[in-house]
Design a protein around this nucleic acid. Structure first.
Lengths: 343, 343
DNA sequence: TTATAATTTTTACGCGCGTAAAAATTTAAT
DNA sequence: ATTAAATTTTTACGCGCGTAAAAATTATAA
């Protein structure tokens, strides 16, 4: 783009020879103007540096093209990657993603929603903290802004929920572990905020009982989102005490497993399959770093591509239809077994 | 907040008993109105649900309270954490952070800047991709929007640069490695996009020569930002071939080191210090996962708290003074040695 | 060439603020 | 109680768009 900057649409109308109302129609929907008119406008845009003022455009709109994406903890590569995939899908459909991290703080989560409210988003994709969230405030927000929850659910909140089928995925990995060795203990946080953790615990107990085994829970003390540290500390105790019923541990998520593996390594315990291995460790999520743990971590992957795509699609469908669903829909995606070396 | 929603400032003036121009003054700077007036407005805000329309507020402003934060790759926890720290500082000073990830794509980086341009940011904090960036377009952007670069520099672009003192940090770790064992080889990407990598290579060569040792570069083939994978593949070859001049490898960054450690583990090579250890590995950055590698990674930490704080401070100072610096300032923070078990 | 349909132009108003300036009110000092 | 200073109120205009409706123009079909 060359030449002097055009200061407003009226001025651009002057230099382009197209009237302002027609230009306005064009910027909102290029296909709503005649093809020959469209070509003239595009030629003018090539010659002059002009874009409509975003603030004036949106001043009188009830809804804008913004879509909020709120994740609980951006430093978790899982959320960073799912956010990226969601952003790609949103951009493809002509909307504008606005990414906000709650950094594990319920107050921050609500501040993010207030922030979003002020930019009049068409909708919001929210991965809530879970039990720590301020449910009343999130509910109030969802009444005003179409919101789809993903990853972690809060019952009866939002238009829909898209996540993983924890029952299937835990069942799958428990089954695999039992078929290939001793039945696992379940390594989890004692007081997790993420509701998936509770669902995974239930699914573990169910799966073990269905296979005729006694469930065994190992509960790690700790708060917050530094799961590796929590896993490392509790794991250090576990490998020191060594009073496990079997040689197999299934971790509630990969980040706990990463900490546990590190603890085992430091204690000189050999993890893996085959001769001389004292412990088998498995995880859940297929965290990007699970391919580089020592040994590489056997896990169940969450289909975050499908979760991201479906979340964006459900929200866009809701925005387009302008009607609230009768009840909160729920879509759960199955996990896939990722067999590596740790179990 | 209770009661019906207030639709505009005029209506809020009605219910609060304060005139609209005075309300406007209050929302812009609460201290600019009389204390008793301020109390009345705050009482009304407690009773009524009103906030000024962000789009109307900003329509006629040359600059808004927005500050863009652009990072090259959000899935890297380093950038996620530094972005979070920057956001905290920005929020503290009454500005509003807008976070955008370039996802390793030069086109996305430029799209992010165009996006930011349209929301009229007061300033931007940019961690550029580096050599892969479109320098001309970034330069054009910087002419219009006060921009501070951080983490990776592009010479003569932006108001200032805030980053790590690679020469000091690499010198520190090379010195430490030479004092505690054999001098290291340098494990790096053959064609990195991040200019820090080149600076680290130069610093390594300098440090080795200063200590009277021969530098040895191990260059990993690979493109993009999946450093662990690149480190793993090249590391697999390195531990297979075993034609290293010494038993010590210094990696250009922790993520390459994570891959290398994983490759060594899979090859049955014992990494660490003490009897029976065949290899020592060190990294740079103090990645959050470096505390959980096997063995835990000896590295140099980047002072991202200081980088984040300084970056935000420099930009806010520039925004406040409304004057461009004569030349691009540069602030480099020293790294600190983090001694763990791998070297 | 003419009639009809599609599209643009012209004119105007409104959105929800920021801000200016004169008038009015309130507060503080004497 | 009076005067001066500080602050608010009143009135009005402008920003840069979206949109409506009538008139004008352009394109297409017969």
């Amino acid at each position: 783009m060359t030449g002097t900057k055009i200061k407003n649409m009226e001025e651009f109308a002057s230099v382009s020879g197209i009237s302002r109302p027609t230009l306005s129609k064009f910027f909102n929907d290029p296909s709503s103007v005649r093809a020959s008119t469209r070509k003239r406008i595009e030629a003018a845009l090539d010659r002059y540096d002009y874009q409509p003022n975003l603030y004036a455009v949106n001043q009188n709109r009830r809804l804008t093209k913004n879509i909020g994406v709120v994740v609980p903890y951006l430093a978790d590569p899982f959320f960073a990657k799912i956010a990226r995939t969601i952003e790609e899908h949103i951009i493809e459909t002509g909307f504008r993603p606005v990414l906000l991290g709650s950094h594990g703080s319920p107050a921050m989560e609500i501040a993010n929603l207030e922030n979003l409210r002020s930019i009049k988003p068409a909708g919001v994709l929210l991965a809530p903290l879970g039990r720590a969230s301020d449910h009343a405030k999130i509910k109030a927000f969802c009444r005003e802004v179409p919101t789809v929850l993903f990853d972690a659910n809060i019952d009866e909140i939002g238009e829909a929920f898209v996540g993983s089928n924890n029952e299937q995925s835990i069942s799958l990995i428990v089954d695999y572990l039992c078929r290939t060795g001793e039945p696992p203990s379940f390594f989890e946080m004692k007081s997790p905020t993420n509701p998936n953790a509770f669902k995974r615990r239930s699914a573990y107990i169910s799966a073990m009982e269905k296979l005729g085994h006694n469930p065994n829970l190992i509960q790690a003390e700790g708060e917050g989102w530094e799961f590796e540290e929590i896993g490392f500390r509790a794991g250090t105790r576990v490998v020191r005490d060594r009073n496990l019923p079997t040689n197999t541990i299934l971790c509630s998520n990969d980040r706990l497993a990463i900490g546990l593996l590190s603890a085992a390594f430091e204690a000189g315990l050999h993890v893996g399959i085959g001769e001389g291995r004292e412990l088998r460790v498995a995880g859940h999520d297929d965290h990007p770093f699970s391919r580089y743990t020592c040994p590489t971590l056997t896990t169940v992957s969450q289909d975050y591509e499908a979760i991201a795509k479906k979340s964006a699609a459900v929200l866009l469908e809701r925005i387009t239809s302008e009607e609230s669903a009768d009840s909160q829909g729920e879509t759960l995606f199955d996990g896939r077994l990722i067999m590596r070396s740790s179990a």
